[in-house]
Design a protein around this nucleic acid. Structure first.
Length: 352
DNA sequence: TGGGATT
């Protein structure tokens, strides 16, 4: 997504021209220190250093990692010895495409506690709201460093989700107080405003959570009956319930993986789980579905006001066969005093 | 009986 190199009213540094910024007597690295955003998840410290070291001598550099999981947070800092090299790095490496990412290279703002955790996640935005309009809404609370609205990769339509990074954390806090749960002028639904997760943090957490559940289960005993083995044709009928695709033959089963791109929208098979209790949380979904295979995401849908589960949730599984087995096994499964209904998620508009 | 979306 090339748009990420050119969003926001100012550069990510807040220092568009890299002006002098001494003041406190400490080493002034405002002309040499760069922040690099949108690095590929799998890039190592060594690769990072190698890439930026090709420009000139580096005083120091750091790929920022999650303290607990150790995984890259997708950004880092490079401090050059020579300000000219920093300038050159911006000119030559900003916008560079690495794998699926377009990296952003800009001057780093001076390190300070007050600018940390100033990044907000906004959802429920009207699809018609532009980035500029979103900024106008938030700018009353402080100086915006960057902003973005996520769009559907295919249609380009807003997903109603955005990010706002303020200069100061207190500004972000005030924006949450002032805007969370509020309806923008003319909007029909309130927006949600909260502190954003770190980039790419979610997948790591999902992995960890799954790992935790998988490990913990060994010591707490099985949570459900053994998975039953179904004949393949029987399984497919049960998994799909009412047929919504052209009939699937057993012969075509092996080729389903190649068809995933259409059947499973971007990154897995989405499963609808109905009749969860109001107390249900994400962990119960991990526990139920984890044993069947790779689960990448679980979501319990909660009421905005009460924070209680609205009775359903969603699970995303990577592999079709594992998803189908989970559905065949868990549909009709009794959880407490409730009988679960589990099926592949279908699009409502396509309902007969 | 059908949401939210984490750059």
């Amino acid at each position: 997504m090339e748009t990420q190199v050119s969003n926001g009213p100012t550069s990510n540094s807040g220092l568009p021209n890299g002006p002098p910024l001494s003041a406190n007597g400490a080493a002034d690295d405002s002309k040499t220190n760069l922040i690099v955003n949108y690095l590929p998840q799998n890039m190592t410290q060594e690769e990072f250093k190698s890439l930026f070291g090709s420009i000139g001598e580096i005083e120091s550099c750091k790929l920022v990692r999650d303290k607990i999981t150790g995984q890259s947070l997708g950004y880092g800092f490079v401090n050059y010895v020579d300000p000219n090299d920093a300038d050159k790095a911006i000119n030559t490496l900003n916008g560079l495409k690495l794998q699926m990412k377009t990296i952003k290279v800009s001057y780093a703002r001076p390190s300070s506690a007050s600018i940390r955790d100033a990044n907000l996640y906004v959802s429920g935005l009207p699809k018609s709201m532009s980035q500029k309009e979103m900024e106008q809404l938030f700018s009353q609370y402080g100086r915006i460093i960057t902003s973005r609205i996520l769009v559907d990769q295919v249609t380009g339509v807003s997903r109603g989700v955005g990010f706002i990074r303020f200069d100061k954390r207190i500004e972000a806090e005030e924006a949450i107080k002032g805007l969370n749960g509020q309806k923008p002028l003319g909007a029909s639904e309130p927006i949600t405003v909260k502190f954003a997760n770190n980039p790419s943090q979610k997948t790591g957490q999902a992995l960890l959570s799954h790992l935790y559940q998988t490990t913990a289960r060994r010591y707490t005993g099985p949570l459900h009956h053994q998975t039953q083995r179904f004949r393949l044709d029987n399984l497919l009928n049960m998994a799909y319930g009412v047929k919504r695709f052209s009939p699937i033959t057993i012969d075509s089963m092996t080729s389903l993986a190649g068809v995933n791109l259409t059947g499973a929208s971007s990154g897995g098979w989405c499963i609808f789980v109905y009749n969860l209790s109001p107390e249900a949380d994400e962990s119960v979904l991990w526990q139920l579905f984890g044993p069947f295979g790779a689960v990448t995401n679980v979501k319990v849908i909660r009421d905005f006001a009460t924070n209680k589960c609205k009775g359903f949730g969603f699970v995303t599984m990577t592999n079709y066969e594992e998803a189908a087995m989970a559905i065949a096994s868990l549909n009709g499964y009794r959880l407490g005093d409730r009988i679960l209904q589990v099926s592949f998620k279908t699009s409502k508009q396509h309902k007969a």
